[in-house]
C-alpha cells in the first residue's frame, strides 16, 4: 500500500497496540479503547482498522496461544513495526510543533482558564 497517512482512529489503535504489547489482539484492544476513551466500539471496527494498518505496513501480526476463555481458539497478536513507530513519532512531533505555535498555550497565558478557576 502506498497510503501512509494516519487517521485519528488509526493513531489511537496503533498506540493501544503499543500499550498492550503481548496482549494486543482485537478484543483486548477494543476493550482498552472503550475504557480509555469511554466511547463504545465494535470488535469488527477495530479488526478492520488493524487489518488496514497491517496493509499500510505499520503492524505485523502472528497467531498466539489458545486460552480456555476463547473455547480453545488461538488469537492474533499484533505488534508495531519500525515504520509504525516512525509514523507515530512524526504525528506527535507535528502536534507538538503545532501546540508550540499556539500563542495562548506557548506563553502559558490562558486567562480564561484562570478566571474560571
Amino acid at each position: 500500500m502506498k497510503e501512509t497517512r494516519l487517521g485519528d482512529f488509526e493513531e489511537v489503535i496503533l498506540l493501544l497496540v503499543g500499550i498492550l504489547d503481548e496482549e494486543a489482539y482485537a478484543f483486548k484492544i477494543a476493550e482498552e479503547f472503550e475504557s480509555q476513551t469511554e466511547r463504545s466500539v465494535s470488535i469488527g471496527a477495530v479488526h478492520s482498522t488493524l487489518n488496514r494498518l497491517g496493509e499500510k505496513g505499520f503492524l505485523t501480526s502472528e497467531m498466539g496461544e489458545s486460552t480456555a476463555e476463547r473455547g480453545g481458539r488461538r488469537k492474533r497478536i499484533y505488534s508495531i513495526t519500525a515504520s509504525g513507530q516512525r509514523v507515530l513519532q512524526e504525528s506527535r512531533d507535528f502536534k507538538v510543533s503545532l501546540w508550540n505555535q499556539f500563542p495562548a498555550f506557548a506563553s502559558g497565558n490562558l486567562k480564561i482558564e484562570w478566571l474560571n478557576l
Partner: peptide, 14 residues
Amino acid sequence: AEEVLGDLEEKFLK
C-alpha cells in the same frame, strides 16, 4: 474464523 470467533466469545463472556 478462528481468531474472530475467539474474540467474540471472550467479549460475550465479559
